[in-house]
């Protein structure tokens, strides 16, 4: 399923880095974790990464392991420099008030 459909279906808030270049990307899986070294080691290329981390380093991590998009759960506030970095390197960041579990369940029912 395309990222644009996921944004609509999950009613995600668009935070930064989402554009015409990546809205048609199709995430292949989901990885949930808040420890960066685990994400580096275990997330797969084209995964959606759900986290409550919002520091600028999440963009570097996502970009280095080719994550399709980051969803920040629990409605947590996102740092300004994180947004700027995400726009700069084209990593879409979305936000939701749902928990990581609820987001994952919904993604699962959409076939991601």
């Amino acid at each position: 399923m395309k990222l644009s459909n996921i944004v609509t279906e999950l009613d995600l808030e668009i935070v930064a880095g989402y554009n015409l270049e990546n809205e048609n990307n199709e995430p292949q899986g989901v990885y949930i974790c808040d420890l960066l070294s685990l994400v580096m080691g275990k997330a797969k290329e084209h995964d959606i990464w759900i986290t409550i981390q919002t520091h600028v380093n999440i963009v570097a991590v996502a970009s280095l392991v080719d994550i399709t998009a980051i969803i920040v759960s629990e409605g947590i506030e996102i740092d300004e420099d994180t947004k700027a970095k995400a726009s700069e390197v084209n990593i879409p960041i979305f936000r939701s008030n749902l928990s990581s579990y609820d987001l994952a369940t919904k993604l699962n029912s959409l076939g991601v």
């Binding site: 808040d34 420890l35 960066l36 070294s37 685990l38 580096m40 080691g41 986290t51 981390q53 520091h55 380093n57 999440i58």
Partner: peptide, 15 residues
């Protein structure tokens, strides 16, 4: 608190 310090860095590097 920023997500560092999982203690997996050196093993990630080795792997």
């Amino acid at each position: 608190e920023l997500g560092f310090g999982a203690g997996m860095g050196l093993s990630n590097m080795k792997r």
